[in-house]
Lab assay of single mutants.
Amino acid sequence: HYVEVNGKKIQATSAEEAEKIAKKFAKIYNATVLDLGNYYKVT
């Protein structure tokens, strides 16, 4: 599981952790979290 933010991949140990990381970055960048199955993308 990982999160992609601005083209950078951030490794996460679980889907739950990946979701938390994605939501945190989405809040910082006022962005949207896309759940793409095996990873989250912040756009």
Rank of each mutant, 00 (worst) to 15 (best):
I10M: 06
D35I: 14
N6E: 05
V33T: 03
K27R: 12
K20A: 13
N38E: 09
L34C: 11
A22G: 01
I10K: 02
V5E: 00
K8S: 08
T43L: 13
A31W: 11
T32W: 10
A26Q: 07
A18R: 01
N6Y: 14
N30D: 07
L34D: 06
T13G: 14
G7K: 04
N38F: 12
K9F: 13
G7C: 12
A22L: 04
E4M: 13
N30T: 05
G7I: 02
S14E: 01
S14D: 07
K8Y: 15
Y29R: 04
V5G: 00
K9E: 05
K24L: 15
T43P: 04
A26E: 05
K20W: 13
T43G: 08
E4T: 05
N30A: 08
D35M: 13
V42E: 03
F25W: 13
L34S: 06
A18E: 00
A15V: 10
K8H: 13
S14T: 10
H1Q: 05
I21F: 05
K9A: 06
I21H: 01
A15R: 15
K9N: 06
A22E: 00
F25C: 10
Y29W: 10
S14I: 04
V5L: 09
A26S: 06
G37I: 07
K27N: 08
G7L: 04
E17Q: 11
T13P: 10
A26I: 06
A22K: 01
E16Q: 11
N6G: 10
K41D: 03
K8Q: 11
Q11R: 14
A15Q: 14
D35H: 15
T13W: 11
K9Q: 08
L36C: 15
K23S: 09
T43Y: 13
E4G: 01
L34I: 14
K9G: 02
E17M: 10
V5M: 07
K23Y: 14
A12T: 12
Y39T: 07
S14L: 04
I10W: 09
E16M: 10
H1W: 15
K9V: 13
N6I: 05
G37A: 06
I21N: 01
V42T: 01
Y39Q: 02
H1S: 09
K24E: 11
H1A: 08
F25G: 00
Q11T: 12
I28L: 14
T13H: 12
Q11S: 12
H1G: 03
V42K: 03
T43W: 12
T13I: 11
Y40W: 14
K24Y: 15
A18M: 06
N38Y: 13
V5R: 01
I21Y: 05
A12W: 03
L36F: 14
V3T: 02
E16H: 10
N30I: 04
Y2W: 15
A18L: 03
Q11L: 14
E4W: 11
D35F: 15
K23D: 06
K9T: 09
G37N: 05
Q11K: 12
L34G: 02
L36D: 03
S14M: 04
Y2T: 04
T13K: 14
Y2F: 09
A26K: 06
G37D: 07
A12Q: 02
V5N: 01
Y40N: 02
E16N: 08
G7S: 04
N38T: 14
I10D: 02
I21S: 01
H1L: 08
H1T: 08
V3R: 01
N38H: 13
N6F: 15
K8F: 14
K41A: 07
A31P: 00
Y39A: 06
N6R: 10
G7H: 05
A15T: 07
V42H: 03
K20G: 07
K27S: 11
Y2E: 01
E16S: 11
Y29H: 08
D35A: 12
K8T: 11
T32Y: 11
A12Y: 08
E19T: 06
Y2P: 01
A26P: 00
D35R: 14
K41C: 12
Y39S: 07
E19M: 15
A31Q: 05
T32D: 09
V3L: 05
I21D: 00
E16T: 09
E19K: 13
K41Y: 09
F25E: 00
A15F: 08
K20D: 08
A18H: 00
G37K: 04
N38R: 10
K41S: 09
H1Y: 15
N38M: 11
E17K: 06
N6W: 15
E4L: 15
I21K: 02
E19S: 10
V5Y: 10
T13S: 14
K41F: 09
Y40R: 01
N30K: 11
K23V: 09
G37L: 06
V5F: 14
S14A: 02
N38S: 13
G37V: 07
Y39M: 07
K8E: 09
V5W: 12
I21T: 04
F25I: 12
T32S: 10
Y39G: 09
T43V: 15
K27D: 08
Y40S: 02
I10Q: 01
V3A: 05
T32F: 11
A22V: 04
A18K: 01
K9H: 09
I21E: 01
D35V: 14
T43I: 15
E16D: 09
I28R: 11
E4C: 15
Y40A: 02
Y40Q: 02
Y2H: 04
E17Y: 06
V42P: 03
E19F: 15
N38L: 10
K24N: 10
K41M: 10
L36R: 06
G37E: 06
F25V: 05
L36H: 07
Y40V: 04
L36I: 05
L36K: 07
V42I: 10
N38K: 09
A15D: 05
K9Y: 11
Y29S: 03
K8D: 06
A22W: 07
N6A: 08
K8L: 13
Y29L: 12
I28G: 04
E19P: 00
G37P: 02
A12D: 02
K24V: 12
E4I: 14
E4P: 01
T13D: 12
Y39H: 09
V5P: 00
A18V: 02
A18C: 07
